[in-house]
Amino acid sequence: MRRFRERLGDHIGPLCCAIGVVAVVIVYAVYQPAVLSAFGIASLANASVTLALAGLGQTVVLMTGALDLSIGSEISLVNCFAATFMGGSTTSIVLVVVASLLIGLAVGAINGLVVAYGRVAPLIATFCTSFVYAGISLTLRPQPGGSIPDSFANLLTGNWGLLPFSALLLLLAVLVIWLPVFRSRLGRFILAYGDNPESAFASGIPVRKVGMAAYMLAGLFAAIAGLFLAAETTSGDPSIGNVYTLNSLAAAVLGGVALTGGRGGMLGPILGAILLSIILNVLSIVGISAFWQDFIEGGILMLVLGLAGIRLLRAQSWMTLLGRSQS
C-alpha cells in the first residue's frame, strides 16, 4: 500500500495530464469530429511536439535545481539558422541538421559555463544569454523568411496512416537522447545533484560538469525543436521561439517536475506539453478568438506557478520558507 501510494505520488503529474488530455480531446472531438482523422491527429501532434521537446530540455535543467530562460531563444536561433542555410540537396540538409544540433550543444555549453563555472545565478545568467541568442537570430534573419526544402518539411511533418512523423521524431529524441542519458551515470548524477547539492559534492560527484551537461542537453532538445519548427513553418522567424521559454516551464511543472530539483521524468513534461498545446488549439475551435491566447497562456502559467508556490507554503519554519525563495 505504501509502495502504491509512493508510486502514485510519483506519477500524479503525468496521470493528471493524461486524464486532462483525454478530456480535452473528447471536447475537441465533439466540436470537430475531424480531429480523429489522420490529418487531425497529425496536426495535433505537430502542434505539441515543439513544446514537448522544449519541455524535455527544460526538465533536464529543472532536475538539477536550476532553470533555463534561454530555451526560447535557442529554438529561434536554430530555426533561423536552418531556414537560412538549408539548401535543397540531401548533403546540405544533413550538414545543416548536424550543424544545428552542434549549435544547440554550443549555446547550452555557454549557459553551463556561465552558471556552473562562472557561478552566476541560473536565472540571471540564462536571462542574459537569451538576449544574446535572440540578437544572433535577429542578425541572421532581421525579418521572418528563408526557406526550407519540401523534402525536409515533409519528412518531419507528414504522416503514415494514423501515425504522424512528428510523433516519431519525439519518440526518436526520447530513445536516442533521454533514455541513454538517464540510464547512465550522468542521469543519476543530474537527479542526485538536484536532490541535494551538498550531498552530491560530498559523494564525489563532479557537480560542475553535471550542471554543464544539463544545459547542453537542454540546448540539444531546443535545437531539435527549432529544426522541427523550421520544417513546420518552412521558414525562419527570430521571434518564433519566445513563447516556448515560459510554456516549457509550465509543461514541466504541470507534468510534475519539481522546481526545486531532484524529481522528474520524461512522460510528465511530454503529456503536459500535449495538454497545453491542445487546450490552446481547442480554444479556437470552441469559438474563443485568437486574441485570448496570450491571456489564457498567462493564466495557466500563473495558476501552475501559484500551485507550485502553495506547495512550498507548507514549510514548517520561516527559515526554510525564506531560505528557499532565493533560488
Partner: peptide, 23 residues
C-alpha cells in the same frame, strides 16, 4: 505570498498583461 521566483512570476504577468491588452 506565494513565494514564486520574481523573475518567472513577473514575466508571466507580463504575458498575462499582453493577453489583456490584445483582448
Amino acid at each position: 505570498v506565494l513565494r514564486v521566483n520574481s523573475l518567472i512570476w513577473t514575466l508571466s504577468i507580463n504575458l498575462m498583461l499582453q493577453g489583456i491588452t490584445l483582448i
